[in-house]
Amino acid sequence: MSYETDLARIEDIVEELEQSEIPLDDALRLFEEGVERLRTAQAALMQAEARVRKLIEDSDGGFSLADFES
């Protein structure tokens, strides 16, 4: 959900910057936060291709993922 929250926060920031007149320091801080979050969100979009895995429940109740040949 971090992508969600990042994007939602960026949208809030954009709105805040557009709607209200805020002290320049605050505006810059908001902008920097927005850029930082955008960087995180974009990192999620730039990941390597993922594999198909299979969920395996171990006997001790733990979980592991094995590659799944599709």
Binding site: A44, L45, M46, Q47, A48, E49, A50, R51, V52, R53, K54, L55, L65, F68
Partner: peptide, 10 residues
């Protein structure tokens, strides 16, 4: 979206 991992739960 090939970056998303698919996990099969048979």
């Amino acid at each position: 979206c090939p970056t998303v991992e698919i996990v099969l739960v048979p």
